[in-house]
């Protein structure tokens, strides 16, 4: 029953987020601030992780296909498919659930503990809209991060396989062009937008409705990560089943 209570309260929170809007001049500043904190602040980690993951995928693929009868462009092809379809959107989103999600939960949770949310409500401000809406809007730029992750993942794969001698530059580039389907990119962006919404709202929910003190803020961040990453995996499964199966 408690599970359904949380689901209901989560959807009510979403509803309240899109009602009684904060003054646009204030909201605009908040959105830019969130873009800086959530998107620009994540470029470094996303770039670092994607580049290395792409490299690892290429090396693992190369080591798994030692058969000389298999074409040389297979490494590039497998790297592209793995990075575009799964590693960039899903794995980076799980990493972001840890980085951005924990940040959102702890910042909103701290505001709850220190009565800053009460202060907003006493002033007659819709705290849901004030705190959550700018996060949702700023995370609409999340596909930009995933595009960067896709590019750097494939670049990492290219560098790892070419410079480690697993593939030639020509073979790898031919591989990443082989049997390219635009729909795979559309599928990735559909997933990415859904993940962005999850990344903005589930951690906000856990921060917003937490009770207790500083210790509970830490616990809420932990629970928030577990739920956000679980929901990302579930959505990934459903969307893949619906769009690719």
């Amino acid at each position: 029953m408690k599970f359904f209570f949380h689901i209901g309260r989560y959807f009510l929170m979403i509803k309240y987020t899109f009602t009684k809007f904060t003054k646009w001049s204030v909201l605009k500043k908040l959105i830019f601030q969130e873009i800086e904190d959530l998107i620009i602040g994540s470029i470094g980690i996303v770039a670092f992780m994607s580049f290395l993951i792409g490299g690892v995928v290429a090396i693992q693929t190369a080591l798994a296909i030692e058969n000389p009868l298999l074409p040389g462009n297979l490494i590039g092809f497998a790297t592209r498919q793995s990075v575009i379809l799964e590693f960039a959107p899903t794995l980076i989103s799980i990493i972001m659930a840890g980085k951005v999600g924990s940040y959102i939960t702890s910042s909103i949770g701290t505001m709850r503990v220190t009565e800053q949310i009460d202060a907003l409500e006493v002033m007659g401000i819709n705290s849901f809209n004030y705190l959550i809406f700018p996060k949702i809007i700023s995370l609409l730029l999340y596909p930009f991060l995933i595009t960067l992750a896709m590019f750097l993942g494939i670049l990492g794969g290219y560098i790892a396989s070419v410079y480690a001698g697993f593939s030639t530059s020509f073979d790898f580039i031919q591989g990443i062009q082989l049997d390219f389907k635009v729909f795979h990119i559309i599928y990735t962006y559909i997933k990415t937008i859904l993940f962005a919404f999850v990344l903005a709202t589930i951690p906000s929910y856990h921060g917003f409705f937490m009770k207790g003190g500083a210790l509970e803020v830490g616990k809420a961040s932990n629970i928030s990560f577990v739920w956000t990453s679980s929901v990302i995996i579930i959505i990934n499964f459903i969307v893949t089943q619906l769009l690719l199966a």
């Binding site: 701290t110 800053q116 006493v122």
Partner: peptide, 30 residues
């Protein structure tokens, strides 16, 4: 609520804002 002022036990100042920004906040909103 625009006619209500509240001083919370822990002050409840917005951590991300400077003192003057905290004071200006209700003016900016209303």
């Amino acid at each position: 609520r625009k006619q209500i002022g509240m001083v919370f036990q822990g002050s409840a100042l917005f951590d991300s804002m400077s003192v003057i920004e905290n004071i200006i906040f209700p003016l900016r909103m209303f």
